[in-house]
Amino acid sequence: MTRHELDARRLLCPLPVIRVQEKMTTLPSGDTLDVLCTDPGALNDIPAWCRINGHKVIDTRTEEHHIIITIEVG
C-alpha cells in the first residue's frame, strides 16, 4: 500500500475532481491518495465522485490554507 499526493490547490471545481479521476486510473487498489485543494466545493464533489466510482474517502481535514482529502483506491 503506497501513499500518493495530488496538489489541486487553486483549482476550481470540477478541475480537482478531474485531476483525481486522472490520477486514480494510474493507482492500484488499496493505495491511498492525499488530495490537497483550496476550493471548498471539492469537499462535496470529490466524495461524490468517489461514491459513484467505487473509491472510499477515509479522511478529510482542513489545514490553515487548504483542505486534505484522503482517498483509498477501490
Binding site: 471545481c13 470540477p14 466545493g41 462535496n44 464533489d45 461524490a48 459513484i52
Partner: peptide
C-alpha cells in the same frame, strides 16, 4: 458549476454540489 458558488460569500450557504455528479449518484 461550483466556481461562482465557491467564490462568492453570499453563495457560501448554498450546497456546493456539482450537478452532474449529483445526477449520476
Amino acid at each position: 458549476e461550483g466556481h461562482t458558488h465557491a467564490i462568492r460569500n453570499h453563495h457560501r450557504q448554498k450546497p456546493k454540489r456539482n450537478n452532474a455528479l449529483w445526477v449520476a449518484e
